[in-house]
Structure formats: C-alpha cells, structure tokens
Design a protein around this nucleic acid. Structure first.
Ligand SMILES: Nc1nc2c(ncn2[C@H]2C[C@H](O)[C@@H](COP(=O)(O)OP(=O)(O)OP(=O)(O)O)O2)c(=O)[nH]1
Ligand SMILES: [Mn+2]
Ligand SMILES: [Mn+2]
Length: 383
DNA sequence: CAGAAGCGCCAC
DNA sequence: AAACGTGGCGCTTCTG
C-alpha cells in the first residue's frame, strides 16, 4: 500500500464527508422545521447532533416525517426518488463517501504489518458454497474499483505487478454448459457480449460503449442468466443507467435476450423443472442442498463453481514455475490472479501466466475459446 | 457489557 | 408465484 497516497486520499474523503454531512443535515433540519415546527429546532446549533446520519432507522423516520413515501432507505428505493427530493440525493452522496471512508480508507492501515509493511489477509480456499475463494481481515476482494483506491496498491521495490483476468468468464462457462450456439458463435468471433448488451439497453453504437456502461451491463447479463425477472431488470436499468423502462419494455427486452440465446433458455427450463437437490461443476465438484434449492441458486452454482474450478486449476498449474522464479502469488479476486514479479522477468512471467490461465480454462471448456486480459503494471489500477 | 441481528453496500 | 448469485464489513439497534 502506498502510504502517502492513501493518507492523502483519506484526508480528501474526510473533507468531502464533512461537507456532505453538513449539506444533508441542513436539508433534513430545514425540512423538519417546516413540516413539524418542533421545539427541538432551537437546539440546532448545540454540539450534540439530533439525528445520527449513519442510522438507517433514524434516517427512515426523518424522511417519512418529511412526507417522503419510503419503506426502507436502501439505495434501490432512494434512487427512485432522488430527482424529486434533493435531500435524498444528499443522503445517497453522504452514504457513498461514508462507506468507502469507514470500510476502506480508515480501516485498511490498521492491517499493515509492522515488519513487512504489507497487508496479509486470510484467503479461504473453500470460502463459498460454490467453491470460490473468500478473503477477510481485510477483504481485498472488495476494494473499490475506482482508480483513486486501486492505484495505492503497488509492488515492492524492483518488482512489478502482473494481473491476469479471465474475459467474460461466466458467460463462456454458460455457453459451454448450455451448448447455446449463438453464444458459442459470438465467442468464436471474439465478440464482447457485455458491450453488446450495454449498447442494446441504452440504444448506442456498440463501439461507443464506455467502460462504466460495459461494467453495468454485466449485472444484466448475469442477472438474466441467473433468472432475473422483468421487474428486477426494470429497476436495475433505472438505477444504474438511468434508463426508464416500462414493465412491458423490460418484459420485451428479456424476451429478446432469450430469443437470441435459446440454448440458455432451454438450459434454464431443463434445470428449472428438474427438482434436483444437488448439482456438479464441470470439474465434478458437488453442491448439495438439504431441501429443494431456489432455481436461482441451481442456475448459478454449476457456472460460478466451474469458473472457480478453472481459477484454482490455473493457480495449481502455475505455482511450481512461479516458485522457482521467485515470483509471488499475492492475491486472487475470483477470476483474477495477481503476481508480484522481479522487474526483469515480468514480460516472461506474464506470458507464462496468460498461457497457463488459458490452458486451465481449456481443461474444462472446449466449445468456447478462453481469453485472458493480462497487464504488467506499477499499480493495481492499470489492469 | 458482549454478541447477534438487521441494514446497507463494496467487490466479483 | 416469482426469484440474478457468491461473499465480508462497519455501523446501529436489539437481546440477554
Ligand atoms: N451473478 C453475478 N455474477 C457476477 C456479477 N458480477 C460479476 N460476476 C461474476 C461473473 C463474472 O464472469 C465473474 C468475474 O467478474 P468480472 O468483473 O471479471 O467480469 P467478466 O469476467 O464477466 O468480464 P471481463 O471481461 O473480465 O470484464 O464474476 C453479478 O453482478 N452477478
Ligand atoms: Mn473477468
Ligand atoms: Mn475479474
């Protein structure tokens, strides 16, 4: 971790948070004064705040008193009303900064080891029901994507980071498992389905889709793959793209998706009516449920699980070579491997990692080509 | 007072 | 009947 950069980032976020807290408080109290004319308003300028901005319960009560119809203060509900009520936008903004400040900016330095000057989290090999790794103390698999955070993660002197990430991995696994011909063809033609979905959703040339729009499309592709409904699609399009969809439009979009990917549709139908209480990944690993699983779990498990199999296969296959070359495997983020390599070997090692990850993929996936995005970097934001 | 539960949100 | 999934973490509030 780049200490100085991190400290500076933390300071900026703190300043930011103070401003946003002031804005939010002002909007809340102003509103409450108007609607309630409560005597406690006289105490406004005392040290003790009347409302805890971090308390969902108090925020909900306060917003309801302002006449805003809410059942909870989750982002999903808030974003619906953010344009109508400035105070809601203020709460969303305050929450965002508070979250990254509390969970990351302030929390992470506590984990820097006094001797190694590094962060040493615990990785759990069987951390999830599907076979993924999990990570904790701290969880380095949930560092914000934003460059200002990622650029603080740097290799030690004389080394470089090598970052390998599978391309569209669970879609490729899904194409293999379902035998969906259209999706297989798409991957054989090296197409990017995340970009395609983004362009269809926002009505924009596929070549003009931004990184953020592509990122947002992932949840649509994986959502539909794992049985997201029209309602869920509609909400998601609104909240992440600002795309207003009627229920009918969402139904139509969903229908078109499955008309294109008929193999996915029939795979879902087959599994959905199967009454299975257990299911395997392509590596043969088994997940068992006590009672009938939800179909969403049943759909997800073989695919997420196979992606995890591939990941672990790649790690196992590369480790001996890495070890011989004094290259350290310093992290993994589900379909991503992070290495720290002596500078002069970095090119050679990155070629090796990429080929090994692809080879591991091919062990389980034969109908669909496997692609890996690889980067040699001086920090984690450069992938 | 400690620990569990609930909420909300970060990542893949 | 309808349903995206897999996690970890910080805070507040509840429970005992
Ligand atoms: N069910 C579900 N799975 C997700 C979601 N986001 C990511 N995943 C899973 C499926 C992805 O293939 C896998 C790896 O995430 P990545 O961010 O690397 O995306 P992906 O590999 O699909 O695309 P990429 O080409 O790497 O940008 O994690 C999600 O919102 N829902
Ligand atoms: Mn990926
Ligand atoms: Mn990834």
């Amino acid at each position: 971790l780049h200490n100085k950069k991190w400290e500076k980032l933390t300071e900026e976020l703190e300043k930011n948070q103070n401003d946003l807290a002031a804005t939010l408080q002002q909007k809340l109290y102003e509103g409450l004064k108007r609607t309630l004319q409560l005597p406690f308003m006289e105490n406004l300028n005392t040290e003790k705040p009347l409302l805890n901005l971090d308390s969902p319960k108090q925020m909900l009560e306060a917003l309801q008193q302002l006449g805003i119809p809410l059942k909870s203060t989750s982002h999903e509900e808030l974003s619906q009303l953010s344009r109508q009520f400035p105070v809601i936008q203020a709460l969303i903004d305050y929450r965002k900064v508070t979250k990254v400040l509390q969970s990351f900016a302030s929390a992470l330095p506590k984990y820097i080891h006094p001797i190694t000057n590094r962060i040493h989290p615990d990785y759990w090999q069987i951390g999830t029901a599907t076979g993924r790794f999990s990570c904790r103390n701290p969880n380095l698999q949930q560092i914000p994507r934003d460059q200002v955070f990622r650029e603080c993660f740097i290799p030690s002197e004389g080394n470089l980071l090598i970052i390998g990430d599978y391309s569209q991995i669970e879609l490729r696994v899904a194409a293999e498992i379902s035998h969906d011909q259209r999706m297989i063809d798409a991957f054989q033609q090296n197409q990017d389905i995340h970009c395609l979905t983004a362009s269809l959703l926002i009505g924009k040339d596929i070549n003009k889709v931004t990184k953020e729009e592509r990122q947002a499309a992932k949840a649509v592709n994986f959502g539909l793959l794992y049985a997201m409904g029209a309602r869920g699609l509609q909400l998601y399009a609104q909240n992440s793209y600002g795309v207003e969809m009627t229920n009918q439009q969402a139904v139509d979009f969903r229908q078109r998706f499955f008309e294109v990917y008929q193999g996915i549709a029939s795979w879902q139908k087959e599994l959905g009516t199967s009454r299975l209480k257990e299911i395997r990944t392509l590596n043969g690993r088994l997940r068992i449920w006590e009672d009938r699983p939800k179909i969403t779990e049943l759909f997800n498990t073989p695919i997420q699980g196979t992606a995890a199999d591939i990941m672990k296969q790649a790690m196992a296959m590369s480790f001996p070579y890495l070890n011989r070359n004094n290259v350290h495997l310093i992290g993994t983020v589900h379909d991503e491997i992070l290495l720290e390599s002596p500078q002069e070997k970095a090119q050679e090692i990155s070629d090796f990692l990429k080929e090994t990850m692809i080879k591991a993929g091919k062990k389980f996936i034969q109908q669909v080509p496997i692609e890996v995005d690889i980067a040699i970097a001086t920090n984690w934001s450069e992938k």
